[in-house]
C-alpha cells in the first residue's frame, strides 16, 4: 500500500490520473473501517486532508457550492438556513466524532444506499462537481447513483464539491434506525417544497439499490396541489391526498430484507415518514405564507 499526500487539488488530480485505483480518503469514516476490518487493501490511499479548499463552502445566488470535505458538523451549524434538509440529515449522521470528520463528498463517493445525505440532496436538487486532469463536469444528482455502492464517477475523477440549490421553501428529513442515536439508516426520507417552481421533490434512502426519488408521488402531489390551488390558498392538505402521496412514496421503494429491517417494514416506514414530513413542511409553508401576506 502507498500513501499519497497531494498538497494541492492539481496534485491530487494528477495522482488520481496516474493511479486510477487510488482510493481517496478524507474523513476516513468509510475507508478506514474497511481497512481496519480487512475488507479492503487498496494499492494507493489518496489523502485529501491537506487540500483545505475542500472544507470550504460558498453561498451563491441560487445555490451553495459545498466543498466535498466540509464536515457534517459545519453544515449543521452554518448552513441550516440555506440547506435545511441537508442540515437535518447531517444531524442524523453517526456521532459527533464522525460528524466532525465525515462530509458529503465521502457519502457520494461511497454511494451506499444508506448514506444519510442522499435523500436530502435528491429532494433539494443538486449537482456533483467532478473533476479530473481531463476537465471538470457537473453531474446531476439524479444521474449520479448508478447501482449499489456505484456512482457515475470515472476512474480518474475526484469529487470537488456539490452544488446544492438553496432552499426556496421548507425542507424536512427523517431517518429510521433502531437506536435513538448513532445508527445506520433502516430507511430515510427527504422532502423539499419548492414554492418558486411550485414543485415538490423527494428522496428515499436505504429502501432500494440506490437512493431514489419517488417521482410518481411527486407528480401526483404537484398535480394535486396545483388543482386545489393549495400553493395560493395555503389550505391544509387533505388527509386523502397526504395518504396517496405516502402510498406512492412507499411504492417507489424496492427494498430488501436484511439484518437492519424487513422490506415490508421499510416500505411501511417510508410511507409514514412521507406523510409526516409533508405535514411538517406544509404547515411550515402555510405559516410562512400567512406571515408574508400579513406583512404585505
Amino acid at each position: 500500500m502507498d500513501f499519497l499526500r497531494p498538497a494541492s487539488w492539481e496534485e491530487a488530480l494528477a495522482a488520481k490520473a496516474e493511479h486510477p485505483t487510488a482510493v481517496p480518503i478524507a474523513g476516513g469514516t468509510d475507508v478506514m473501517v474497511e481497512i481496519n476490518f480487512d475488507h479492503r487493501r487498496p494499492e494507493y490511499l489518496l489523502d485529501l486532508n491537506r487540500i483545505t479548499d475542500l472544507t470550504e463552502w460558498e453561498v451563491g445566488q441560487d445555490s451553495v457550492r459545498l466543498g466535498a470535505s466540509v464536515p457534517y458538523t459545519r453544515i449543521m451549524e452554518n448552513l441550516r438556513a440555506e440547506l435545511p434538509g441537508l442540515a437535518l440529515a447531517s444531524h442524523t449522521v453517526a456521532s459527533p466524532q464522525i460528524r466532525n470528520r465525515g462530509g458529503v463528498g465521502g457519502n457520494l463517493g461511497t454511494a451506499s444506499p444508506a448514506g444519510d445525505a442522499h435523500p436530502a440532496l435528491l429532494a433539494a436538487g443538486a449537482e456533483v462537481e467532478a473533476e479530473s486532469v481531463r476537465g471538470s463536469r457537473l453531474i446531476p444528482i439524479d444521474e449520479f447513483y448508478t447501482g449499489v455502492k456505484r456512482n457515475a464517477l470515472a476512474p480518474d475523477e475526484l469529487i470537488r464539491a456539490v452544488h446544492i440549490k438553496k432552499a426556496d421553501g421548507p425542507q424536512q428529513y427523517s431517518k429510521v434506525g433502531t437506536r435513538n442515536a448513532m445508527v445506520i439508516a433502516v430507511c430515510a426520507f427527504g422532502l423539499a417544497l419548492h414554492p418558486e417552481t411550485r414543485t415538490v421533490r423527494t428522496g428515499i434512502g436505504s429502501a432500494a439499490p440506490t437512493p431514489v426519488r419517488a417521482k410518481a408521488a411527486e407528480e401526483f402531489l404537484n398535480a394535486a396541489l396545483d388543482e386545489g390551488g393549495f400553493w395560493d390558498n395555503g389550505k391544509i392538505i387533505t388527509p386523502s391526498v397526504a395518504k396517496q402521496f405516502a402510498d406512492l412514496c412507499a411504492a417507489a421503494c424496492n427494498p430488501i430484507d436484511d439484518v437492519r429491517g424487513t422490506a415490508s417494514y421499510r416500505r411501511h416506514a417510508v410511507g409514514i415518514m412521507a406523510r409526516r414530513t409533508l405535514t411538517w413542511t406544509w404547515e411550515s409553508y402555510r405559516g410562512t405564507a400567512a406571515h408574508t401576506e400579513g406583512v404585505a
Binding site: 474523513g27 478506514m32 481496519n36 476490518f37 490511499l45 453517526a94 456521532s95 470528520r101
Partner: peptide, 29 residues
C-alpha cells in the same frame, strides 16, 4: 470497535474530537 461506533479512541485532532481509529496515520503529518 475500530469502526467509529464506540468513541473509546476519541482524541482531539487540531482541537476537534475525532475517532482516532478512523484517521489514517499518514493524515496526521
Amino acid at each position: 470497535c475500530e469502526q467509529g461506533e464506540c468513541g473509546s479512541c476519541t482524541v482531539r485532532l487540531d482541537g476537534v474530537p475525532v475517532c482516532s481509529c478512523l484517521v489514517a496515520a499518514g493524515q496526521v503529518e
